[in-house]
Design a protein around this nucleic acid. Structure first.
Length: 259
DNA sequence: TATAATGTTAGACT
DNA sequence: AAGTCTAACATTAT
């Protein structure tokens, strides 16, 4: 579910309410998340994002690292509201509860030191410089779409935004990463500088079940040009959008304007 | 009932 | 050896 813009949305919302608050209790509903003992009593210092992961930094304490994977959500609840189904973890504070909801149970939580992010392009919101993209992709034959989604290189881009960025850049997702010219990488740089910040401003893309911390839908689905639009008409050139499988993932593109 | 789903990764294959 | 691909994880919705 959540890629960089969705996790950034949660991060900003969490950082707006949690710092200074004391953890009153932790209830692990799904034992597969691990024991998570000993967090009670700590206060939140701040909340940051690393790629698609969230760090709850505790004052004079460890960091709680959350990864939502495919279907994880976070929900802030006040008062005695009913607990939704698929709730896997509850962290209580005096002013409310933070719920991890995750139907597929892929989400992970670990407590420890801050994770070290080794991706050279650690935060695509700061820009994806064409020259560095070209250097990293040199000689590689994997599809450029798989390259953009490889978290070891670039932290935070997933399936929706890889498809959208490549449409914006007019590049076929199946092109070998190493075959792009510097001019083409500049188009990728420009497209991501448009697509990613706009998605953050829209508080994410709600195509099925994404909701923000307060249960609200995002609005970036209104800006999707190709993702999940198989058979529709490309708004840029009038071509027909097609779906392929690449690296095991659905991949949407317009073959008539993406080369 | 079969298929696909916004992520990651271990192991297989080249 | 390094690069790339595939299956698996667990569950729901169409």
């Amino acid at each position: 579910m959540p890629e960089l813009p969705e996790v950034e949305t949660l991060c900003r919302q969490l950082d707006g309410i949690l710092p200074g608050q004391e953890i009153r209790g932790v209830r692990v509903v799904d034992a597969r998340l691990g024991p998570l003992a000993g967090l009670g009593g700590y206060r939140i210092f701040k909340v940051t994002r690393q790629g698609k992961g969230l760090c709850l930094k505790l004052e004079n304490g460890p960091t709680v690292f959350l990864h939502l994977r495919m279907t994880g959500r976070l929900l802030w609840q006040k008062g005695a509201a009913p607990i939704p189904s698929h709730t896997r973890l509850i962290i209580s504070f005096s002013s409310g509860k933070l719920l991890l909801i995750d139907p597929r149970r892929f989400a992970t939580v670990r407590v420890g030191s801050d994770p070290v992010l080794s991706a050279p392009l650690a935060n695509p919101l700061d820009g994806l410089p064409a020259r560095r993209l070209k250097e990293m992709a040199e000689e590689r034959r994997l599809p450029v779409k798989s390259f953009l989604m490889d978290q070891r290189f670039i932290a935070g881009i997933g399936n929706i935004y890889a498809c959208e960025i490549l449409h914006g850049a007019k590049i076929d997702p199946g092109r070998p990463a190493g075959s792009l010219t510097i001019a083409e990488w500049r188009r990728v740089e420009k497209a991501s500088a448009l697509v990613l910040p706009r998605a953050v401003a829209c508080r994410g893309t709600t195509v099925s079940d994404w909701r923000d911390l307060f249960g609200a839908s995002g609005s970036n689905q209104e800006h999707l040009e190709v993702y999940a639009r198989e058979g529709d008409i490309c708004r840029r050139c009038g071509g027909r959008i097609e779906r392929r499988v690449m690296g095991g993932r659905g991949t949407w593109s317009c073959p008539s304007c993406q080369r």
